[in-house]
Computed example of a mutant assay.
Amino acid sequence: MAQTQDEVLSNIRQYIAEARDLQDEQMDFDASSTEVRLEQTVQELQARVQEQQAALEKLRARSKVDVEKAAYASNDPREKLKQLRAVKDAYKTLAHVPPFLPGKDSALPALLAARTLQETIVGTKEAISSTEAQITNTEGKLRREEANLQDAHLITEAMEARIERLRTRQVDRSQKTSAQLAKDLIATKQAQTQAYEEECTRLTKALHDFLEKHLSAMLAAEDLGGPVVGDILDAGNETLAAGFTKNGKAKSLKKMPSDTRRQRTIDQIWGLQAMPEDEEPMTEAEAADSEMSELIQHLFTTLMGPGGGKAYYELGRDSAAARFLVRSKIAQFHPKDAWKIRLIDFGRELDD
């Protein structure tokens, strides 16, 4: 059975580790003896070079032929034939001459073997790095292709289920009269309308709960001169009653304002509607909650009115509620009149 890529890489890594251990292994040797052997090898090679140079000079002295010119093939066919015969004779003569081999104690074989081994190790390391990079790249492509294949299977299953439903519906419609089809369509629309109304009621309740428990106190703090919504999360009734300094910091709770002064502040900021006569006076958070609820109701009424998503609602004052809706990307001011605001109609046509 052929080896897998993981097994091949494991074997290569094991070989590299063993070669490195052998290379790093300490060996007992005589340094002086090694130096002597290296010196003898150098002298031997130098002597061999001098011998070859002497032979070459002797050949040049005896021969009348220009060696540099004879090294290239002549254009004359006869001269070229002589050159080929000379080369042939030289090969025949040298074939019987034993090749030069270093002595028994020479360090040249070990040096050549070490150089070859080093080149092999470097090349193997580069090949391993390149192979690992290719494997990583291939694995990434494989994961992407598998994800695409899974998406394709899911899309195919969804399309097949959709086609089956359409076929079943078409068969059912073909077996019903026009009156039955109209009745089914009316029942479907009524069920959708009821589901939308229930969802709208649920979302409205969740919105009022969020306003009452979290947002109203932060809106009141911003209207009273405190930090903007989100910068303070624990603004209690006592903190709102004490108010804020010009720098937006909460005032000390030791000097709480009187109820009359407190209600006068509420009346000045949120208006007379914030203090009904037949009920208990509102707190700052309750007044902000009431203002936000009324603003949202007016914005929805404007959106569903004759002007649709292009109509604006005119504000009575610059309130924290309006600024919060704009910062939250729920509403937008008129580009030329900051006293007008409208909800962003997410359901409008793209070409509007």
Rank of each mutant, 00 (worst) to 15 (best):
T204F: 11
L207Y: 11
H208T: 09
D209P: 01
E212Q: 08
E212V: 00
K213S: 11
K213M: 08
S216T: 01
M218E: 14
M218D: 06
A220G: 07
A221H: 09
E222V: 00
D223A: 06
G226I: 03
P227S: 10
G230Y: 06
D231T: 04
D231L: 11
D234K: 08
E238P: 09
L240W: 04
L240Y: 02
A242H: 03
A242V: 07
G243D: 08
G243R: 00
G243C: 09
G243E: 04
T245R: 06
N247P: 03
N247C: 04
N247V: 02
K249R: 13
K249F: 15
A250I: 07
K251S: 10
K251D: 14
L253V: 10
K254R: 13
K255V: 10
K255F: 08
M256G: 12
M256E: 12
D259M: 05
R261K: 13
T265L: 08
T265Q: 11
I266A: 05
D267I: 00
D267C: 01
I269T: 03
I269N: 01
W270I: 00
L272C: 07
A274I: 00
M275K: 12
E277R: 11
E277C: 03
D278S: 13
E279M: 07
P281I: 00
T283M: 10
D289L: 01
E291W: 06
S293E: 14
S293Y: 00
S293W: 00
E294V: 00
M304D: 14
G305E: 02
G308K: 06
G309R: 05
G309L: 04
A311F: 05
L315D: 01
G316S: 09
R317C: 10
D318T: 05
D318A: 12
A320I: 00
A320N: 05
A320S: 15
A322G: 04
R323D: 15
F324Y: 14
F324Q: 12
F324G: 02
L325Y: 00
R327I: 13
A331I: 06
Q332H: 14
F333E: 02
P335C: 07
D337N: 15
A338V: 08
K340D: 14
R342S: 11
R342H: 10
L343A: 03
D345M: 00
G347V: 04
G347P: 01
R348K: 15
R348N: 15
E349C: 06
D351M: 05
D352M: 07
